[in-house]
């Protein structure tokens, strides 16, 4: 599968101008992405961003309207048949009447060179619940059982669509522990999530999606800097609110990235809320009802989406050039 002459090995995932339309809705819009072997990549975005559709297209479970997807240099189905790919998908579940062990064994039997069932269960930390029926499992246990099913083919690439949904904190911990073991052996993992902290803690690269497009692609530190801004808002006195130059004065303050004054309420987006707030209080000592709010992921996505039209410091285009 690896080419002897290529200087760089074939990427684990290569998406080229991938587009998927459902009627008038464009769920995935011209996505190009290379994920290299050994990378642990978080696909981050709010619900409806196109993460799950992108995953389905990458696995060949859904036909693209245009563009192409390759896994290890071949069509997705070829990589799946070769046992190179494991996945935990949205809406992919185990049969409730079977035990965990039976589920893993049944899927193992469909693969050509599976791991021993006990080993797959050990890796996913489900050995202690091996004989429990799937219908009796808690949310976290179920996800671990699905993880066991996903790794039983001993895949080189693992694709996980919101693996920790329905897990409590403890269960998340156990899950990511078992995942670390998997990636330490140099395998590629792509996981979709809408938790920034999860992406930050586990991925070495974050690809952010919004409205079907990649809006940011970089290290967790880079992406966090885009997302981590705050909003300082407060009420002004009538005199300051009535003056024309007030907005410009805010805009000139340290750290400020955006200003909005509505009536007597001012909202200032800033990268350095401490410095901005000090400057505000120095210039406008009458400011009151002060709030400092962390920018939410949704705000960040909105901002990135509108910035995606104009080149930002961290767009997908740049990351690929």
């Amino acid at each position: 599968m690896t080419s002897a002459t290529a200087a760089e090995p074939v990427p684990a995932i290569r998406l080229r101008r991938l587009t998927k339309r459902f009627g008038a809705l464009t769920a995935v819009d011209d996505v190009s992405l290379d994920i290299h072997r050994g990378e642990v990549v978080a696909l981050l975005g709010p619900n409806g961003a196109g993460k799950s559709t992108t995953i389905d297209l990458s696995l060949g479970l859904s036909a693209a309207s245009s563009g192409s997807a390759e896994l290890f240099g071949v069509a997705p189905r070829g990589a799946i048949v070769a046992g190179d790919v494991g996945a935990m998908l949205q809406g992919g579940a185990l049969l409730p009447t079977m035990t965990v062990q039976q589920s893993v064994a049944l899927v193992a039997a469909a693969h050509r060179h599976p791991l021993p069932v006990t080993e797959a269960m050990g890796r996913a930390r489900v050995s202690d619940i091996a004989n429990q029926p799937v219908s009796k499992l808690s949310g976290g246990q179920l996800q671990r059982a699905r993880f066991a099913v996903a790794v039983v083919s001993d895949p080189r690439l693992l694709i996980l669509d919101e693996p920790t949904a329905a897990m409590d904190v403890e269960a998340r911990h156990v899950f990511w522990d078992s995942m670390r073991e998997f990636t330490d052996s140099g395998r590629t993992v792509v996981f979709a999530t809408h938790y920034l902290d999860e992406a930050d803690a586990f991925a070495d690269r974050i690809v952010m999606m919004s409205r079907g497009r990649i809006v940011a692609d970089g290290t967790p530190a880079q992406v966090k800097s885009v997302v981590s801004g705050r909003t300082v808002s407060f009420r002004l006195d009538d005199v300051a609110a009535g003056q024309n130059g007030t907005e410009a004065r805010f805009a000139a303050m340290p750290g400020v990235t955006g200003v909005e004054v509505r009536g007597e309420r001012a909202s200032i987006r800033t990268d350095d809320s401490d410095a901005t707030l000090r400057a505000v209080l120095a210039d406008f000592p009458a400011a009151r009802d002060i709030e400092v709010i962390a920018r939410s992921m949704d705000d960040a996505f909105m901002a990135l989406t509108s910035e995606a039209a104009a080149p930002s410091s961290l767009t997908s285009e740049e990351a690929h050039r």
């Binding site: 696995l59 479970l61 799946i80 048949v81 046992g83 790919v85 494991g86 996945a87 998908l89 809406g91 992919g92 579940a93 185990l94 049969l95 899927v107 469909a110 693969h111 050509r112 699905r146 099913v149 996903a150 083919s153």
Partner: peptide, 9 residues
């Protein structure tokens, strides 16, 4: 379950 099976040979 079918979706799960589609990630197998």
């Amino acid at each position: 379950w079918n979706r799960q099976l589609r990630i197998t040979p």
